[in-house]
């Protein structure tokens, strides 16, 4: 009996110590980690739009963040969008599931604070009333050039082989895929982990909405010339025109699966398919509401 008590005591102490060490490490590193993730996201987004350190984005390009929420009131569920307005303030627009406009509520929050999930959710909650259940769903970044829409950036998460894969997808104004970047994943290195490689993720580039809607994974080997075009950036043997020509030739094809990682390939393909399809559907509804209600957004 005494033995058991000693064991319990020592194990508890060991757990507490371990927890303490991890907690201290977490507190000490969390801020830097978040900052790194943010910086990296910005860099990835710009590179997906084709800008880099050598070719910086012009002043006329602006990014506008739209946050989507699920709003529950009793049994009813609605979609809520936090939209930036032309005068710099924010507005929360609720739309019911059939696409009908419900309400528009001004939200007082600064642009910096709107980027913080917790503070943003609180501000919206205060604006629309605390009796409604509010759940953050996702965000979309509308990129404009001189006030005209240029592209959409969709950070998203879908399930992979073992756990979630988070990615950023860039679409042009016609929902053609501009590029895909995998941000975080835990697929098996060397197998499913290959989803981050150019020869896989670049296959999505240039695929129009109609193709994406019925995109599948095929297990035939990747043609040699297509592989060269997909890895052109890394290999540097092929001119941009040649790459564009070959990629154009394959733009309506399905996705070639990774060797030994069909599940991962399929997960990414289905994830991208779902993101594009849902986004195109939701944006059509949101745009209609914006026009009907004369809501002045900067995009």
């Amino acid at each position: 009996m005494k033995n058991i008590l000693t064991i319990i005591f020592r194990l508890t102490v060991a757990c507490l110590l371990a927890g303490l060490v991890m907690g201290v490490a977490f507190v000490a590193t969390n801020k830097a980690k978040k900052h790194n993730i943010h910086v990296n996201e910005q860099k990835v987004m710009l590179s997906l739009l084709g800008y880099s350190a050598k070719n910086p984005a012009p002043e006329s390009v602006a990014m506008h963040e739209v946050y989507r929420y699920l709003v529950g009131e009793g049994e009813d569920l609605a979609m809520g969008y936090l939209l930036p307005l032309r005068d710099g303030s924010f507005s929360f627009v609720t739309i019911d599931l059939t696409g009908g406009f419900v309400a528009q509520t001004p939200v007082t929050i600064s642009t910096e604070k709107a980027a913080e999930t917790d503070e943003r959710t609180q501000a919206i909650g205060a604006a629309i009333g605390v009796d409604k259940a509010l759940r953050y769903a996702d965000q979309t970044i509308v990129v404009t050039n001189d006030g005209k829409r240029m592209a959409y950036l969709l950070p998203g998460r879908f399930s992979g082989f073992k756990t979630f894969i988070s990615a950023i997808l860039a679409l042009d104004q016609n929902f053609t895929i501009l590029g895909l970047e995998i941000m975080e994943h835990e697929e098996d290195p060397g197998l499913g982990g290959e989803i981050v490689q150019d020869y896989f993720k670049n296959q999505f580039k240039g695929k129009p909405l109609e193709t994406v809607k019925k995109l599948e994974v095929v297990k035939t080997p990747l043609p040699e010339e297509y592989l060269k075009a997909l890895e052109a950036e890394k290999r540097g043997q092929m001119g941009a025109e040649e790459v564009a020509r070959i990629e154009g030739q394959y733009k309506d094809n399905d996705i070639y699966a990774l060797t030994g990682a069909t599940i991962s390939s399929r997960s990414v393909t289905n994830g991208v398919k779902g993101m594009v399809k849902k986004f195109a559907y939701r944006l059509a509804i949101l745009d209609r509401v914006l026009v009907e209600q004369h809501i002045a957004t900067p995009f």
Binding site: I7, A25, N36
Partner: peptide, 24 residues
């Protein structure tokens, strides 16, 4: 009698700490 759980705990702690420090 509880050495194996303690070892696992130690390894897990170090893995987590190294993971967080590298990420930051």
């Amino acid at each position: 009698r509880i050495r194996i759980p303690t070892y696992t705990l130690t390894i897990a702690t170090w893995v987590t700490v190294i993971d967080m420090v590298l990420a930051a």
